[in-house]
Structure formats: C-alpha cells, structure tokens
C-alpha cells in the first residue's frame, strides 16, 4: 500500500469508538468512521505508513494482520476517492 496522509483540509476528532471527519473544502462535508477505521486514521495522522497503521490496528484487536491490511486498503480507496487522503510523495526537483 502506498504511503498515505490525511488531506490538509480535513479536521478529525478520533475517539476509541470512532471518528468524525470534517472536510472544509467547498461547502464542507462531514464523515463518520467506525472504530477500526478511526484507529487506523489516528496512526496515519501520527506519521505511520498505511501498513504500519493497519498492523497497529490488528495488534489492538488481536486480529489477523493480513485481513486488517486488506480492509484498510479498501477504506483507503474510499477515502482517496473523496480526497480525504493523499498519496505521500517525496518532493523531487525536475529539470
């Protein structure tokens, strides 16, 4: 999974039970994340890679890491489609 980071326009409130995301682009949109996704988002926001975050979620719940990684890949696609997550790209100079 590519490295991902939350969009700068997204403000998140994360609890152990879930999370709320407010995307202030345009007219503003609210999203709700269930518990495992919210925990994954929290790790991502702290700088973990997508897979590291998924592994942390798996450890928290005592779940199969491969299953959690697959689930988080699906979630990442949804979040990227809504422009709430971006692929992290290291800056390069082009001539």
């Amino acid at each position: 999974m590519p490295d991902l980071h939350p969009a700068s326009t997204v403000h998140a409130t994360i609890t152990e039970r879930g999370g709320m995301l407010l995307d202030v682009r345009g007219r503003g949109r609210w999203y709700a994340l269930t518990g495992s996704g919210a925990l994954w988002w929290r790790h991502l926001a702290k700088g973990a890679t997508a897979d590291e975050a998924a592994d942390a979620v798996a450890a928290h719940f005592g779940s199969d890491p491969e299953r959690v990684r697959a689930d988080m890949r699906n979630l990442a696609r949804e979040l990227q489609d809504r422009r709430l997550l971006h692929v992290y790209s290291r800056g390069r100079w082009h001539r």
Binding site: G28, L33, D71, L75
Partner: peptide, 18 residues
C-alpha cells in the same frame, strides 16, 4: 467499558453541510 472485537472499517458521509 470489555475487549472490543474487530470489525471492518466503514465510512459514512453525513447528509449535512455552516
């Protein structure tokens, strides 16, 4: 406030816009 069991994450877009 019992260990939680894992469930796949879900994302909901709320039907509110101030």
């Amino acid at each position: 406030s019992t260990p939680e069991t894992y469930s796949a994450p879900q994302l909901f877009e709320l039907d509110v816009v101030k």
